[in-house]
């Protein structure tokens, strides 16, 4: 209805002096109600918009959010990459640790710090018996005898040697301290049990070779007994092993 759109204020030509009637009241109330709805709704909208964020700010925040999401993705990829690297490094470290442990184990074995077991011979040396009419033995076993036995055993390929429970290591001494023999600063008395791990046949034949050490000792009257064992256990060196003066040479 394009022709009726003129406002009521611009229609003085009608000039209709009317007594107010019921339809007029109703239309007025309706208009007032619609006006009230519109006004209050608009108030609320305006207040809501003032409380809310502006359009520019929304766009700004959206862009920022997108950037941050992109950054987050990148960082997540980086994090997974780094964790993979960390895992690799951890694996490498575990392997290195295992290798080091194996090396340490080997070193301890070679140094004689751990008990070892295997085939070998047991050599028992005792002083000549004293009951041939003399009060004491004519001969007592000296440190040289033990040293020669140990030397012979080593020469025959013994891998671990102990005398009366004292493991012979690189720093061990076998020293005459009458009437004892000191091994690892421990006093030993006869009979001497020498345990050697190695090829039992080789060890035995090295000692019992004609004109060899056993023959020589038996001539002196020493009681020598050699037993081959399939399995014997040589104890480990149990004293603190510490070098106070010797330091490793630092290579440039």
């Amino acid at each position: 209805m394009p022709g009726v759109c003129a406002s009521s204020t611009q229609s003085p030509l009608e000039g209709k002096v009317s007594k107010v009637k019921w339809p007029t009241y109703l239309s007025l109330s309706l208009v007032a109600m619609i006006l009230g709805v519109l006004l209050v709704f608009q108030f609320r909208v305006v207040r809501y918009i003032e409380q809310g964020v502006s359009l520019g700010r929304v766009q700004e925040l959206t862009v920022e959010l997108r950037q941050l999401e992109k950054e987050k993705l990148k960082l997540a990829a980086e994090a997974s990459d780094l964790s993979a690297k960390l895992q690799q490094a951890g694996q490498g470290q575990a392997e290195a640790e295992k290798a080091l442990e194996g090396e340490l184990e080997k070193a301890r074995l070679l140094a004689g710090l751990v008990p070892v077991t295997g085939p070998g011979v047991e050599v028992t040396l005792d002083n000549p018996p004293a009951n041939r009419g003399w009060a004491t033995s004519l001969y007592v076993i000296r440190d040289e005898d033990l040293l020669r036995v140990v030397n012979e055993l080593r020469g025959a390929g013994a891998e671990a040697i102990s005398i009366n429970g004292q493991r012979i290591v690189a720093t061990s001494e076998i020293r005459w301290a009458a009437p004892f023999i000191n091994v690892n600063l421990t006093r030993l008395v006869p009979p001497y049990h020498i345990l050697a791990i190695g090829n039992p046949g080789n060890l035995r034949s090295a000692l019992e070779i004609p004109g060899g050490l056993v023959e020589y000792l038996q001539e002196l009257g020493v009681q020598v007994k050699i037993q081959a064992h399939d399995r014997l256990t040589v104890p480990g060196y149990n004293r603190p092993l510490e070098f106070r003066y010797a330091k490793p040479v630092v290579k440039e």
């Binding site: 009726v4 003129a6 009521s8 000039g15 209709k16 002096v17 007025l28 208009v31």
Partner: peptide, 27 residues
């Protein structure tokens, strides 16, 4: 626009040529 129409209607009523058809359609 609605406010303008309402005040226009009030004014028309005071000048005693209020027509509620024109008022409603104008509103």
């Amino acid at each position: 626009a609605a406010l303008d129409s309402v005040f226009g209607g009030v004014r028309a009523a005071m000048e005693e040529h209020f027509d509620h058809t024109i008022f409603l359609s104008g509103f």
